[in-house]
Design a protein around this nucleic acid. Sequence first.
DNA 1: GCGATATTGTGAAATATTGCACATAGTTGA
DNA 2: TCAACTATGTGCAATATTTCACAATATCGC
Lengths: 211, 211
Amino acid sequence: MNKESKIPAPSIERLAYYSRPLEALLDSETPVISSEKLARLCGVNPAQVRKDLAYFGEFGVRGVGYDVRDLLVEIKKILATDRDWTLCIVGMGNLGSAIAENENFKKRGYKFVAAFDSDPTKIGRTLPCGLIIEPTSRIRESVRDLKIEIGVITTRPHEAQRFADLLMDSGVKAILNFAPVQIRTLECCKIENVDFAVKLEHLAYHIAKIL
Amino acid sequence: MNKESKIPAPSIERLAYYSRPLEALLDSETPVISSEKLARLCGVNPAQVRKDLAYFGEFGVRGVGYDVRDLLVEIKKILATDRDWTLCIVGMGNLGSAIAENENFKKRGYKFVAAFDSDPTKIGRTLPCGLIIEPTSRIRESVRDLKIEIGVITTRPHEAQRFADLLMDSGVKAILNFAPVQIRTLECCKIENVDFAVKLEHLAYHIAKIL
DNA sequence: GCGATATTGTGAAATATTGCACATAGTTGA
DNA sequence: TCAACTATGTGCAATATTTCACAATATCGC
């Protein structure tokens, strides 16, 4: 267990959140920002910003703040988003298509190089981004040949684990799962589950309390 | 500060996660489940399951476990998903459309009753689910007339705060934001931000470390 | 060069969350 | 009825995360 593995997961997620306003600040040519202002933009405590950054180095200047451009470069270096990543997506329903086309992903260097579906009527269809939907039987081959590093799952829940296993076994190093099931992975494959109905349920809980 | 406000936010989110396998167990006619099995299905600690549930009551039977059907009913009651919710969506790009059509949402009683976009070329278009895209100038009126309780934002980031303010001011009680900016709200309006590029960045961080 | 001011980096305190371990209570079979 | 077994509910300890508070260090104006 090395030093880096002790960095709290919330800190790592916040780094990504910090980068959003930094990009906007860079566009608006603001050269420097304080932890206090960045914190306000992200809705967190200023000490938190400083501590999160301090896990990785000393990026600020005392009495001045952080150079916007430098800080953004450093954060991207930390999160390994200073390079492109090769992804594929399994499950080309509405959500899958939307994600494959998503500007936000493209802008950050996440390149979808293959799209799969098990529905024969969808096979061969060309997406606006140029990808052609392939049968899921081609997953193993494509992951190997195109050196796909991350798999995204947007299938129905009952198929999700099966495709996760297949992706893992084919060699992807990480999986982003949008199906509303908890996917289990081996040690060698990192998983993140995203279930946005959970967020709605959290909201419902809170507003029902007030009513 | 009442008793309920001391319940940890992670516990509330986990309740939603617990409900996923419970639904499947109900379909497969498994009558009873132990905290240990449910925990394994959700990738958490059994004591955590028991403690989360204990915040809201005693739902289990010692020596036996939890009745699947009853527990699901209780969780739905707690999360206020035992009723329908009325939502609208602002920003009818790929992601907005996918969310409006999403089966997972529909199944859980989240009803989209209005869809808005500021792009004139999209206005009047009918979605597969039957909704007609309206101009954003109609947001205030629709929220009031249709008693919309939750607003979903899937616009570009630079417009997101403006529409959030408008939704809030029109009377929605909660906002689910998919734009990659941190939306600020008043006390009266609960917000959840979902930025899935953040999840990818988290994955990238971890797999880059191994390489 | 120096005092006034600003803002970082960080140890230590405060708070929040998780997990252990066991008393408690229900079930089953003889 | 009772012993053996099972699995919950929960006080408390362990761990994780956040926030405070301040020393350290940079800039600016004179």
